[in-house]
Design a protein around this nucleic acid. Sequence first.
DNA 1: ATACAAATGCAACATTATTGTATTTAGAAA
DNA 2: TTTCTAAATACAATAATGTTGCATTTGTAT
Lengths: 150, 150
Amino acid sequence: MAQVKNNYQFEDMLQKHNLKKTAPRLRVLSMMYSKNTATSQPDLESVMNDIDRVTLYRILNVFEEKGIIHKVFDLNGTANYAVCHSDCQENHHHDEHLHFNCTACKNVYCLNELNIPKLTLPAGFEPQAFTIYASGLCPKCSKKGTAKTN
Amino acid sequence: MAQVKNNYQFEDMLQKHNLKKTAPRLRVLSMMYSKNTATSQPDLESVMNDIDRVTLYRILNVFEEKGIIHKVFDLNGTANYAVCHSDCQENHHHDEHLHFNCTACKNVYCLNELNIPKLTLPAGFEPQAFTIYASGLCPKCSKKGTAKTN
DNA sequence: ATACAAATGCAACATTATTGTATTTAGAAA
DNA sequence: TTTCTAAATACAATAATGTTGCATTTGTAT
């Protein structure tokens, strides 16, 4: 489920990160916290179409720097943005979770719960971060496909 | 090491996929087979700067459709292209390997050898493909960083 | 209430990708 | 070899995405 927060909490978040409480920022926050999937850049732009495109880019950038959201590219290379779970810090993201890209509805899910197995790389490679992408059908779409009715 | 092939083999590859043997296609093939890393779209364009940009896009697209190369987005969302290993077929890629993106030299390595552990997703998710990204230092760059001299 | 830094809005521009069409070319057929 | 045709390339135009600089507005500390 989506993380439910009210406007006061969003204002607190901004204050905590030394960001001014502005209407565009609050709207972006509340939009992203109302969903349990990442939002694509095109979607964000069309939903927030009265906010200047450049402003939106800048809001997303500061939010990412501050560890409020993280950026993830879907299988088409399109930027998607999702709220970070609690333990992200400024300039140090803990987004080593699995990103699931549904091939039907195109939604990107962040599966935080999943623990990523440790991988051993060939000699010489010094990995610092991992991200796993899976594609296929999400619960909603797989249900549709196999359901007797509909 | 890079897979070494000569021009005759490239011509065979094209013929096998019912593609005409043209100079631009052969040049793209030989360029990509000469490297052991993926090539970014910007790099491709600057190296192949006398081939029309649109032609390059179309060549990359058919090669991908035919299973000759695969596209991988690096951590910045930039498209990178790499030759597929043997068992890729038309419209059915087997690129479930690990992509290693070096944070220093920006190169993307396809680590085919590595076997990907099976992951269990939350109920309802029906994964069809996995890709793992790792970022960090590649052998060349990690050596540079720790070397006494240089 | 004022002042100032920060944020927004706007204009211009850069890069990456797509579509349509005329021209050229590879390869098959005569 | 020459001719023919579908395929491939080149070129022009446009769309989508992302960036930079600067003037204006706004949040907030004083």
